[in-house]
Design a protein around this nucleic acid. Sequence first.
DNA 1: GCAAAAGTGTTATAGATACACCCATGG
DNA 2: CCATGGGTGTATCTATAACACTTTTGC
Lengths: 240, 240
Amino acid sequence: MQGYDKYAYEPFAVTVDLAVFTIREGRLHVLLVERGEQPYAGRRALPGGFVRPDEAAEAAARRELAEETGLADVAGLHLEQLRTYSEPDRDPRMRIVSVAFTALVPDAPEAQAGSDAARADWLPYGEHRPSYAPLAFDHDRILADAHERVGAKLEYTGLATAFCPPEFTLGELRQVYQAVWGAELDPANFRRKVLATPGLVEAVPGAARLTGGRGKPAALYRAGDAAALHPPLLRPEGRP
Amino acid sequence: MQGYDKYAYEPFAVTVDLAVFTIREGRLHVLLVERGEQPYAGRRALPGGFVRPDEAAEAAARRELAEETGLADVAGLHLEQLRTYSEPDRDPRMRIVSVAFTALVPDAPEAQAGSDAARADWLPYGEHRPSYAPLAFDHDRILADAHERVGAKLEYTGLATAFCPPEFTLGELRQVYQAVWGAELDPANFRRKVLATPGLVEAVPGAARLTGGRGKPAALYRAGDAAALHPPLLRPEGRP
DNA sequence: GCAAAAGTGTTATAGATACACCCATGG
DNA sequence: CCATGGGTGTATCTATAACACTTTTGC
């Protein structure tokens, strides 16, 4: 161990926090738990938990994602590191360094309350808490950072398809952009843009499906293999 | 402490690693140390160190940046969290979670060897190690991630000015882009693009300076206040 | 038939690209 | 006077935005 003393310092605890988003009825929703214990008992918070001694933060995040969403095939879900929050006073109990992740979930079954949570719910982003009840710890900031990151990544990656089921219509894909950006997009121009971007989506030949119950059935597409979009699909009006 | 036992687990150590870039003679350079101790003694590595019990990772990173570069006014330098590396076996000694940062430095005085390093040097990126001698730990990956992140952020932020002294010419700014992207840019079009982007740079009235020792003296500019660039300044040929 | 959503067409404008060319300086 | 880098002009092409219009479905 070459002069190391593992116990010389007050130890750090390492946790993961998750900002899990989905689209429901054309609106962006976020998964929040209600804390059952002090501190912040009864307050809403991001799901999360401790990193175990032998697992990477990514593995811990995926484990928590499976527990809280109740989804079976968590392996294929989009999970991405956001950043790490390490202010010494961010948890009143002890020194906790938290690695935050953003996850994108296509369809949303009802949420499962995890071990330390009283309940877990999908809530519409923007109405997920009353103004007088901030989220626990620094989770308001983490959630805002996550939302901004997702919005930015929609511009220059194929990330939006991570919100969609395996086969989807261009109208559904457009709703993803509209829900995350909070802006209306011209269906005609959106369609052309998406189809002109190589690798964003690929057509499922012959397949079609009704979307809103009304209107012409829409052709189906699958997610493409492009990581980056050229040119990017910029949101209107610069950064909101 | 509500049922917590701080010492129940093998403790995590938390460190910071820094990918510090600068431009020298039109080429991108990275700051690397040579390790004096096992493991990886004699190998090059990113500068870094332990996060102290009462400081945030950002503070630790800035402290290490001051130590290794020997710069006085480290407060104004661009320092940005990259991501956190937490694979359980990334350090053979113990469980170390490392928060990686990217720093951008304008001019580059000679580097200072820190406490645990035999020496520290600015090395041209791409020739910073022989192919048979990878960097210590997972630092090759961290450095590659940092380079990609910087290249991407030049496209849609005013980050390039962080590599420049307080007053700079558009030729110098263009060299930043060229050095990071490894691509030639048309001076005329670059100039127009930069000046057309609101908030990227602002002119210093009347000031001019020779750059290459030859040619017409160039007007001087200061960094603007824009965080995001609209429209973005995309690198040629998509992602390299 | 009417409303709603998919899909096509058209035009105007803005931005990018590729060059030609002039300007001011050191040697 | 020439090499070098700064700076302007301009033609061409491509991307975007705004909108009119047609198609196919459920009610």
